[in-house]
Amino acid sequence: MLHERWALSGSVALRPEPFGALAYDFTSRRLSFLKSPRLVRVVESLRESQDVAAALTGAGVPEEQWPQYESALRQLADRGMLTSRGSQS
Score class of each variant (00 low, 15 high):
Ser36His: 10
Arg15Ile: 13
Gly60Gln: 04
Pro67Gly: 07
Pro62Cys: 03
Gln68Ser: 13
Ala7Ser: 15
Ser11Gln: 11
Pro67Asn: 07
Ser36Trp: 05
Glu70Leu: 14
Ala53Pro: 00
Arg41Val: 02
Val61Leu: 05
Val40Ala: 04
Ala55Thr: 03
Ala55Asp: 03
Gln68Gly: 12
Arg85Tyr: 07
Leu73Val: 06
Gly20Pro: 04
Gln50Ala: 10
Val43Pro: 09
Glu64Arg: 14
Ser87Tyr: 02
Gly86Asn: 10
Ala53Leu: 06
Val43His: 12
Ala59Trp: 01
Gly58Lys: 01
Arg85Pro: 07
Gln75Ser: 13
Glu44Leu: 14
Arg41Glu: 13
Ala55Ser: 15
Thr27Met: 01
Ser36Asp: 02
Glu64Phe: 12
Trp66Leu: 04
Ala7Val: 07
Pro18Leu: 04
Tyr69Leu: 01
Gln65Cys: 02
His3Met: 12
Glu48Tyr: 08
Glu70His: 02
Asp25Leu: 02
Arg38Cys: 04
Ser89Asp: 13
Ser32Ile: 00
Phe33Asp: 05
Glu4Val: 03
Ser71Trp: 03
Arg30Asp: 03
Ser28Cys: 00
Ala13Val: 13
Glu44Thr: 14
Ala23His: 05
Arg30Gly: 01
Glu4Phe: 11
Leu31Met: 11
Ala53Lys: 06
Met1Asn: 09
Asp51Arg: 05
Arg5Met: 11
Asp51Phe: 04
Glu17Trp: 05
Leu2Cys: 01
Arg74Ile: 03
His3Val: 06
Val40Phe: 07
Trp66Cys: 02
Arg29Asn: 13
Ser45Trp: 02
Gln68Leu: 13
Gln88Ile: 00
